[in-house]
Simulated assay, not measured.
Amino acid sequence: MLAAETRSFSRAAALLRIKQATLSRNVLLLEHRLGVKLFERRTRGAFVTPEGLPIIATARRILTEVETLQTRARAMRNGDAGELTIGFCSSLTAGDLRFAIVEFQRRFPDVRLNGVERDRGFLHHALHAGVIDLAVVTGDLGDPGVRRRPLWSERVLVALPDEHPLVETERIYWHDLRRQTFVLGTQDPGPDLVRLLQARLAEPGYEPDVETQDVSRENVLAMVSAGWFLTLVSESALGVNHPGIIFREVHEPTGQARIDYGCYWRSDDTSPALRRFLGLIRERYPDA
């Protein structure tokens, strides 16, 4: 390549820091192997022959592809490229998970990011099977075989039909929600919110009216807007407009009611892209 570009074996050898005789011998061996004369040797230099032009062009293309492969391999090794699959159970329309993913894609645009939205049980199995690299869920998987890091917490909100009497209440506490009918979906974080409702609203002689239905979060909210019942959501659900529904924060005596999220990954997962994502999480949420 250098001999073709400089039109001189001596200048090419000097740039390569080898003897001219060594370069000339290697070129002769290549010509013999290919059965094609690549250079016309003259007193004024070495010139590529017409037969050698397409071969030199192919060699130049191969070298460029090798350099590209080397650059991509370094990027994958450093976590700047590659693939990362995140499993989650919350909406990506708003909330901390969405912000973390958007920031990760901004910093590492060459990493292909895949998402899997399923319930916590499925994500737990998918993590062990290697289908996903990271699971972001509520609650605790209770599995010593995976590593865990606490993440953020999200506000718990009650979804009310826009004509419900509680819409006019300045601040809603748990006791304001007694005697109301609640329906939650089976998708996470629905089961955690059911347990939260039962823990906060139960009292001697009274069990809260809470049921679960095997429908999506969006359809539960659609039924709320029709005035059938109330439901609870985490604040990540606020990214989509839901006509006919008013979202109000639920308060504890000590502050806003919240639900905690954590992330889980296999201890033997050495993915550089995963390492980059966890680094971003530590940077963004150092106190988690």
Rank of each mutant, 00 (worst) to 15 (best):
G244F: 04
G262L: 09
T186Y: 15
D209Q: 13
V250L: 09
F229D: 00
A226I: 04
G205Y: 03
D269E: 09
V220C: 00
L201Q: 11
A202H: 11
Q198I: 10
R217D: 12
L238E: 07
A222H: 07
N241Q: 11
V240E: 14
R179K: 13
L196E: 12
Q256V: 10
S234T: 14
S267T: 11
P253W: 07
V220H: 05
Y261F: 15
I246T: 12
H251S: 13
F182Y: 05
D192I: 08
D214E: 13
S225F: 03
V194N: 05
L196C: 11
D192C: 08
L201G: 00
R217F: 09
S225Q: 03
G205W: 01
Y261H: 14
R178A: 10
I246K: 14
G262R: 05
V220G: 04
Q213F: 09
Y206I: 02
R178H: 07
S234D: 15
E203T: 07
R266A: 08
V194T: 06
V250H: 10
R258K: 15
L230S: 02
I245D: 00
E235Q: 10
F182H: 09
G262C: 03
R178P: 01
H251V: 02
W228E: 08
E252Y: 08
P208G: 09
Q187H: 12
E203V: 04
T181R: 14
F182K: 01
E207W: 12
V250K: 10
N241Y: 13
L274S: 02
W265I: 06
N219I: 10
N219A: 12
G227H: 04
Q180C: 14
R276T: 03
Q198N: 13
N241P: 08
V220N: 02
A273E: 03
D188C: 11
V210P: 01
T270A: 15
H242F: 10
P272K: 07
D188E: 11
S267K: 14
R217K: 08
T212H: 02
G244A: 00
I245P: 03
Y206E: 07
G205F: 00
L177W: 01
V250S: 06
Q187T: 06
R275E: 15
L184S: 06
C263A: 13
S234W: 05
A257Q: 08
Y264F: 15
T231D: 09
W265M: 09
E211T: 14
V215Q: 08
Y264M: 07
S225C: 04
E207N: 04
S236I: 02
Q256K: 15
T181E: 13
E249Q: 12
P204I: 04
V240G: 08
L184F: 07
C263L: 11
D260Q: 15
P189D: 13
L201E: 00
L184R: 12
E211S: 11
S271L: 04
F247A: 06
Q213R: 15
L196A: 09
G227E: 00
N241F: 10
R248H: 08
Y206V: 00
